[in-house]
Design a protein around this nucleic acid. Structure first.
Lengths: 353, 353
DNA sequence: CTGAAAGCGCTAACAC
DNA sequence: GTGTTAGCGCTTTCAG
């Protein structure tokens, strides 16, 4: 189908209204419902081949486009999926979104992404998405104990979580194995000879923050190290600035750690800032490990050793879970946990002896 | 308005259908149209205060949400804006999107973003957005000579361009002043003493690629340098890999340039790769300048000197242009050009004497 | 195989 | 101020 043979936008003059199935019906001398059938792949078999062809031709000539709002009103399904994103400018999120959209588009759904930063409360945004008739919701923003979760459980619109989970595990989710990621990081540092390893934790009301912290503590204990030699400072947000603050606090401790594992890459970059501010160098004085492997951390100085999480796959999985929920709303809760991978670069080295 | 006092999602049981104005009307003993009026801020003044209040209360109690599809079908306006993005994972785009969405949300519009990478042809995506009834379109993907532009001119759905322009300037646009940006870059290098300055150009079918190249040539000429000493290699795409290839070609020239200005930051990072592969160091052997100032280029090694473009403002401007177009479709074409700024970091230095 | 009729939820004339 | 009526564009029984 070439583009030239339909007049999509132009050609009808700037003011002509969009053609409807009625217009096509009139020109073909058939009833609108016949046009509807001919133009619907699923119902096309119910109409005579020659008639269907004539209708199709006329539709193309007119540049006809199905009105999804009308269809949605009639069928009760909009083909829209709402996505609540933490902050679209956060470099960590786009890959997830990309995996999500790709999967959803393939099934005929369009995604409408709302940045939580710019709007009102999370619940209001969810409500406005519901008002738009979304067939499902993907939340990438929930806190461990979050009102939206309570409101979403058993709701008529299916909801899945991505990148984060709720404390009670009441909603289906696709997330990375945070504990495994921290184990990878800690084991790597221990193998290098580090014995005093600090942690810049993420916000504790967010599952990644809490679980990575817990994973850190468990790994330290399992390595036979004392938790007393594993100081933790929690950052107030997943930002470079908050990482710097927490990093500074960690470096100010009496027994300065020889390595720091951060709950994510942004925090790790903040730790770089703290190191610079303290006149220390990485990895000579302090080794640093991040989490997520966001774009370009291989280019910073020094290139960041980090735990790579499967972001695109996480998005694709969330899409799959949501689609399953839409088809059978009462299916059991599935929590998909994706395995991370340690990417060793130049920010980690043996401690000074 | 607290969240507790409405039951939005839960509380009606998982299977109950969403309440409609009819339900509210029945419970309040009024006609549906009265409910419609009471719930519409613009029409509320037409209904008695006490009745309006009762209706509002009942709506809250029921967790009623306006059905936008139905409203849109009736009014012909969906409150949806379609955005065609080049690649959501490209770190340059999110700030634009963020500025766009913020502005649009404030006016009650939701944005539906489609990644051109994952779908079919650009025109098909536009058509599907039109089928969804979008009130306007923002294209961040057009090439200089692009069919979509021809199809969009005089179309019934307003279209604006962001970050890019079409060759004939037929559509309203918000973009950075590419020529001014290149002048900033070239002047800076000339002031440092460079006399052989190369350019890694972007794809020439894209306005930024073509205009930055033209701006580069003009600046070189105006600086009194010979174009013979200003070799240019065009990259095939705005990617780090393409930048590396083009950079390698530039560095392979007989008279190697002492400085390279890249058409964007991703290409500049590719030039870093090319330098590393050639055993050269930046800025000692070759200075590098990027364009866009995308997130974290201040952290790469060496921190990148680059031309900062006003991305959020670009998005906000595009939103403004689109809203203006929606209100008066026949307004004159406006091309807003935003001024860039040179951010000097450590990738540029005096040439070796 | 095709036509007729009804209605999804909402708004906007137009009455009273 | 409020009710009545009609219809946006589409799908889907139900007849024939």
């Amino acid at each position: 189908m070439r583009h030239g043979d339909r007049r999509s936008l132009t050609g009808r003059g700037a003011t002509a209204p969009r053609p409807t199935i009625k217009d096509i019906a009139a020109r073909c001398g058939v009833h609108p419902s016949t046009v509807s059938r001919a133009l619907s792949p699923a119902m096309k078999h119910l109409v005579a081949a020659d008639v269907a062809e004539r209708i199709q031709a006329e539709a193309n000539a007119l540049g006809y486009r199905l009105n999804m709002a009308a269809k949605g009103l009639r069928t009760g399904r909009s083909g829209l999926i709402g996505v609540l994103a933490p902050d679209i400018a956060d470099p960590g999120f786009p890959p997830v979104l990309s995996g999500l959209a790709e999967h959803l588009n393939a099934e005929g759904y369009a995604t409408i992404v709302v940045d939580v930063g710019t709007g009102g409360s999370q619940q209001d945004l969810v409500d406005s998405l519901i008002a738009r008739g979304v067939d499902g919701l993907v939340l990438a923003t929930v806190r461990l104990h979050d009102d939206v979760v309570a409101h979403s459980v058993g709701a008529s619109t299916p909801v899945v979580l991505v990148n984060r989970v709720d404390a009670a595990g009441e909603l289906p989710s696709a997330a990375s194995d945070d504990a495994a990621g921290m184990r990878l990081a800690v084991d790597h540092l221990v193998a290098l000879g580090h014995r005093r390893i600090g942690h810049v934790a993420g916000p504790q009301e967010i599952s990644t923050g809490a679980r990575r912290r817990a994973g850190f503590e468990a790994s330290i204990a399992d390595s036979g190290l004392s938790l007393g030699d594993a100081p933790i400072e929690a950052a107030t947000a997943y930002t470079r600035a908050a990482g710097r603050e927490a990093g500074l606090r960690l470096l100010g401790r009496k027994a300065r750690p020889t390595a720091i594992v951060a709950a994510n890459d942004l925090l790790a970059l903040g730790v770089y800032d703290a190191l610079a501010a303290s006149g220390l160098t990485c990895p000579a004085d302090v080794s640093v490990v991040g989490h997520n492997d966001m774009p370009f951390v291989d280019l910073v100085s020094p290139p960041l050793t980090t735990v790579r999480i499967a972001q695109r796959e996480m998005g694709a999985t969330a899409a799959r879970l949501l689609l399953a929920r839409i088809r059978s709303p009462d299916a059991a809760n599935e929590h998909v946990v994706l395995q991370p991978e340690l990417i060793i670069r130049a920010s980690t080295a043996r401690p000074r002896s």
